[in-house]
Design a protein around this nucleic acid. Structure first.
Lengths: 157, 157
DNA sequence: ATGCGTATGATATAATATAGAAAGCGTCAT
DNA sequence: ATGACGCTTTCTATATTATATCATACGCAT
């Protein structure tokens, strides 16, 4: 399952950038496309290798600049633990996200859990700390990879 | 203020390792000492440079191995966002920690906030995810660096 | 003394990321 | 139309962070 229509996601990204007054250039669009097509997180150099096949001039700054742009525009997330990148899942207006990293199958799930973000906001506020960006990443085993009786799948919903 | 007695912290570390059946060798002790003396987080190569002055044979694996040991023994934390290391604050039995990184003054504060860890555990459980390690790091401004009316200091306590 | 586990030494290289200068290319005010 | 500006891309070089691999040393139990 190649996921929900990459072309549509690219078009949505285009609209978002227009709205933000930024440009989703061809280069950036190609990089976003590569990120969207992958099931697993990709590193900058994996992306670079792929990019090189269509754009011979590509070098590390090429990909890092494109990724910086995509991250600023909330189209891509950087997973610090992996030094790797995944598409942003969501239509959401980006409060905060949390990531569940399965070290068995390598997939990363994006959450936007208000219980977590509220707890973080409260913990920060209690210390007079003004957060500007949160990084929340859990290593572990996803529902599919975990031994069944260790972690029963979530109640059906 | 050089902080609470580094020698005592080293001795406590020694006892902890003995209890764990691991050895706080001279090399590891020296590296821990370097980490303890710094107010700011130090990168592996900053530590390496300092270590070289007393141990000419030191090379990258030297420092990375020492750090791995110290981290496994809960004596040091790695701050992913900074690729840098700080001493573990605590006597605590290491449930989970969270870190507040001030990008003005560079200090990192370690928390052990149960509101946060409970919220994370709940969020993970709800998706059938079994966490093995949590990374929670907030970038922002500490109470000292934040403009006063943006973030009033915590209620006196 | 031998063998085993753990720690350290030594060399090389891999992987990740940024700096900085210059050229291309629209666009838009004059 | 042109030239000044802003943004993007190119190009070259280098900085920073991290690991692989094999060899050597040391303590200690058999």
């Amino acid at each position: 399952m190649p996921g929900p229509d990459i072309a549509a996601q690219l078009d949505a990204a285009e609209r978002l950038c227009t709205k933000n007054g930024t440009q989703l250039t061809t280069l950036r669009r190609v990089v976003l496309d590569l990120v969207l097509r992958s099931t697993a997180p990709l590193t900058a150099y994996q992306l670079l290798d792929q990019l090189k096949s269509t754009r011979k001039s590509a070098v590390p700054p090429t990909i890092y600049r494109a990724l910086d742009f995509l991250i600023e525009n909330h189209l891509v997330h950087r997973i610090e633990r992996l030094n790797a990148f995944i598409p942003c899942d969501a239509d959401h207006e980006h409060a905060d996200a949390q990531f569940l990293i399965c070290h068995q199958c390598g997939t990363v799930t994006e959450l936007e859990d208000h219980g977590v973000s509220d707890a973080l906001a409260a913990a920060a506020a209690a210390r007079g700390f003004t957060p500007s960006r949160a990084m929340v990443e859990l290593d572990g085993l996803c529902a599919t990879c975990a031994p069944p009786d260790t972690a029963p799948p979530p109640a059906h919903r």
